[in-house]
């Protein structure tokens, strides 16, 4: 359908959202991602029966962790979209992009970039 969506998004493919682990999500934030979202089948229609419900729980748990460490759970979301629903996919991408832009850069990223800049200045 070639519906455009913001180019701020990169997709990592998994067989089922049930494969998505808390460490995968946390690694992305630790390395400076401003936002992460998990996209799975509609609830009740998981190709692997219950994977998306497991993922939902993990996303909720990770949101708590992010809140606790001051990154903010709002930067992580889970969406359920039917495989044929291109319009919804691009809508979600826009929604997430706008939301993350409103939240601004992740505090970890800001810190990493600062460290990196300091690092450079030392070596120069």
């Amino acid at each position: 359908m070639r519906l455009s969506y913001p180019d701020s998004i990169r997709i990592i493919q998994v067989p089922c959202t049930g494969r998505v682990d808390v460490i995968h999500l946390m690694e992305a934030f630790q390395r400076g991602a401003d936002g992460v979202y998990v996209v799975g089948c509609l609830e009740g229609e998981c190709h692997y029966l219950t994977g998306n419900l497991r993922a939902k729980k993990r996303v909720q748990y990770t949101k708590q962790l992010l809140d606790e460490i001051g990154v903010g759970g709002d930067r992580l979301e889970m969406y359920n979209i039917a495989a044929s629903d291109g319009p919804r996919f691009s809508e979600v991408a826009r929604e997430m992009d706008e939301k993350i832009r409103a939240l601004g850069p992740s505090p970890i990223k800001t810190m990493l970039q600062k460290l990196h800049a300091d690092d450079l200045s030392i070596h120069v």
Binding site: R10, I12, V14, R19, D21, I23, H24, E27, A28, R31, G32, A33, K109, L112, Q113, H116
Partner: peptide, 16 residues
């Protein structure tokens, strides 16, 4: 895990 994380790390390289 290391295959998925390799992709995450490779993506985030651009940040640093």
């Amino acid at each position: 895990d290391n295959q998925i994380l390799a992709q995450v790390d490779a993506l985030m390289e651009a940040i640093q």
